[in-house]
Nucleic acid binder design. Structure first.
Lengths: 244, 244
DNA sequence: GTAGCGTGGTATACATAGTAAACATCCGGC
DNA sequence: GCCGGATGTTTACTATGTATACCACGCTAC
């Protein structure tokens, strides 16, 4: 409203759009992305996004179908930030065609790079990993990333069926680890009844192994857990591929 | 309310409690468990549970602190249904002490049995796996089950740190697979823009590998994906244990 | 120029959640 | 016979998504 007036006041060719954010899908997604980064994906509510524009929540519905669509757009945009670099160390962009020409010997390094890139970006947007597990990856970026991973695994010599299963395994590990890391973040040691937090009070009589390795849960950092799991997964895949 | 009157009407020693459910924590958890099984954990709302007793939602707060506590009680109760049988085939109950006396050679079969038992039960209560990923396992049953798994892995010869990481990996795979299966359930082929549903429309030009293996995502059933992933994980763990 | 129509934002309201606060009721013990 | 704790109710407030009706602007066709 009053756009004409504001255009006169600001006296600029493109109107006031370059100063005050215009309400369109692109801008909405960007604001939502910002909220997701700062407060997590669940904090991306219609009212919160609308508030950043000084409009009502209903205004957003002229540009996105509903919250579900907005979430998908946000997650897809997050996916566009994930650029698994080639493991050789050269900084070239990953282009799908190019990836297929790389040496097949380093398939596991490519898979590792893929998982690390996923984790790095997903960690910046709390709640996204959990969302992906519950809703499933979708959209163009998801396809691009799936292709990257599948291409890497296909280079191992696994057949198609195993390649498909392998992508599921690596994606699962990546998403669920980040989801776990998301919650373990800020309120460290706040809730005593949490799984990890409660490990100090384990009764060694009834739970001898847990009591013994309980310390490990504290000292291990997320990085180590993630990398070790990834190594085991790739070792298992590699052994299977070699045996075929 | 009117308990005296009802006791007179029903004319029974214990009052009407044996006919109409009494409101106490145990009964609340059982009703919540029932709702979780039929409609999933997210459907366990305070009002829904209260409705089954013919009371208001606020009445529940005399017996549970809040929805969070109720959810934890429900999940713990679900955990009590998980009884990973010994892999030898004998039907004895798994008791923690007994588990440790079993032969260490079959550590991977024990881990497999653990994961299968988890999956079988978690599948009966949709949304629980996702809840576990987001909130983390907690409570007595979680400890018992963790001990079971850790004990199995410790039998592989892995050191404590690796055992801890191994439990995280196996739990992650189990939980996230069931979480994925939960959503893939009823609305199969409903949303065309879903990850799996969209795989038919993959452009073979841009996503050659995905297009090729796309069929596999349809034909593979959940059982196969789960078992194969589990095998790879255990193979990776085993190789590492053997190398140490 | 003006009538009308489409685009886009607003106002209002409803449904579903959890839950706080004050009140009511009932029952057992003094 | 009354009192106090335990237990359920009432009311209401919050946050969330979203349906519906409305309205204001500005462009286009006459």
């Amino acid at each position: 409203m009053y756009t004409t007036l504001l255009r006169i006041i600001f006296n600029m060719p493109g109107g006031y759009d370059s100063v005050v954010k215009t309400l369109n899908q692109e801008a909405i997604v960007l604001v939502a992305l910002d909220i997701a980064r700062q407060k997590g994906l669940p904090a991306v509510t219609m009212r919160a996004v609308a508030g950043h524009f000084g409009v009502t929540a209903m205004a957003l519905y002229r540009h996105v179908a509903d919250r579900e669509e907005l979430a998908r757009l946000v997650v897809d945009r997050i996916g566009s930030h994930i650029r698994p670099a080639a493991p050789q160390g050269d900084a070239r962009e990953d282009d799908v065609a190019g990836d297929h020409t790389t040496d097949h010997a380093d398939w596991d390094d490519r898979a590792r790079a893929w998982a690390r890139a996923q984790r790095t970006v997903l960690r910046q947007y709390p709640g996204t990993a959990a969302w992906l597990i519950e809703n499933g990856p979708a959209g163009p970026q998801a396809y691009r990333l799936l292709e990257n991973l599948a291409a890497a695994l296909a280079g191992s010599g696994l057949d198609d069926a195993r390649t498909a299963r392998g992508t599921a395994l690596i994606m699962s590990w990546t998403f669920s680890r980040v989801a776990v890391e998301d919650r373990a973040g800020p309120p460290r040691g706040e809730r005593a009844d949490t799984f990890v937090g409660g490990l100090t009070t384990i009764d060694p009589e009834r739970h001898p192994v847990t009591a013994r390795i309980g310390q490990e849960f504290f000292t291990l950092d997320d990085e180590e857990i993630f990398e070790t799991g990834l190594n085991w997964i790739l070792a298992g895949l590699g052994a299977d591929a070699a045996a075929t």
